[in-house]
Every structure is written in structure tokens, then in C-alpha cells.
């Protein structure tokens, strides 16, 4: 019995030691709104975007000519995606305690309104919005982008 308790304690310590986040997979972003046609491509599969679904690193989001998607990230970043858009979350890390901070968003085409969150506040150099012909560095906060 004592042995079992010791084991449990050990497991508990390992569990806390390896990750401060208890969730199985760390939450990155949630779809707060969707209108018109929008898809999300994850690996080899493509699904329709639905309200409340999670968005993960390396996901590709595409909207059709009537599509709109609103995203909120774990660091409070807010992104509104307009029609005819393709974008990818190339990198996202929000671990302020470990100082692991990164946000790289790639906009291939379309329209985006971007409002930066805590990553840009804590480590502005860690935020990049990559366009086909240039890269935007963000020290805050509200950026409007259109790529033809």
C-alpha cells in the first residue's frame, strides 16, 4: 500500500515536472465565427471549418469568395479572415514560463485583420506575418493586410 502511494506520488511529480499544462494537447486557437465557405487542411485531410473547432499549428485555412473566419488564440491574438484567403499557422508557441514564444502566420492571398496578443507584448521579435513579397514584424497591435 505504501509502495502504491509512493508510485502515485512519483507519477504525479513526473506529470507536473514534464509539463505545466494538464491538457492532453496544448490548446492554440479556436474558431469563434464562420460564414460562407471555409476549409481547414490538416495533413492529408480537408474539412469544412465549423464554429468552435480547434485550429492547430501547420493548419491551412482557405475561404471562398463569401467566406469569413474569426480566430482567437491562447495568447489573446485575434484574427479575422476575409473572402478569398489562404493562410497557414507556420509556428505557434506560447509558453511564457519557459520563454518559448513564437507566432509565424503565412498569408498566401486574401484579406486579414490581425490584432496581436501577449506573444507580441512579451517577445515582439518572435512575431512574423509572412506575405509573398515581404515580412511584417509586429510591435503591436492592429494590422490590416491584403494580398492580391
Amino acid at each position: 500500500m505504501r509502495h502504491a502511494i509512493a508510485c502515485l506520488l512519483c507519477l504525479g511529480l513526473v506529470w507536473i515536472g514534464t509539463s505545466t499544462a494538464v491538457a492532453e494537447e496544448i490548446f492554440i486557437s479556436i474558431v469563434k465565427s464562420v460564414e460562407g465557405g471555409a476549409t481547414i487542411t490538416r495533413g492529408d485531410t480537408t474539412h469544412a471549418v465549423t464554429s468552435g473547432m480547434e485550429v492547430k499549428r501547420a493548419d491551412i485555412i482557405r475561404t471562398d469568395r463569401n467566406g469569413h473566419v474569426g480566430l482567437v488564440f491562447s495568447d489573446d491574438t485575434r484574427i479575422s479572415i476575409g473572402p478569398g484567403t489562404e493562410l497557414t499557422i507556420d509556428s505557434y508557441l506560447f509558453e511564457p514560463l519557459e520563454n518559448n514564444l513564437s507566432f509565424v502566420l503565412r498569408l498566401v492571398r486574401g484579406t486579414v485583420s490581425y490584432l496581436s496578443g501577449q506573444i507580441a507584448k512579451l517577445a515582439p521579435e518572435a512575431v512574423q506575418l509572412v506575405l509573398p513579397a515581404a515580412t511584417i514584424g509586429v510591435r503591436g497591435t492592429h494590422v490590416l493586410i491584403k494580398v492580391d
Partner: peptide, 24 residues
Amino acid sequence: CGKKSMVMLAPDPDGSVGRITVAN
């Protein structure tokens, strides 16, 4: 290379203004 991009700095919802750098 015809992907023309436009980037605008908008005021924050609280009225303050941030800063961006656009580079290639």
C-alpha cells in the same frame, strides 16, 4: 511576382497606435 500586397497599421480598439516593420 505579381502578388501585390498592401499593409496598413490601424488604430487599436482602445485608440492607441502600435508599430510595424514591413521588410523584404
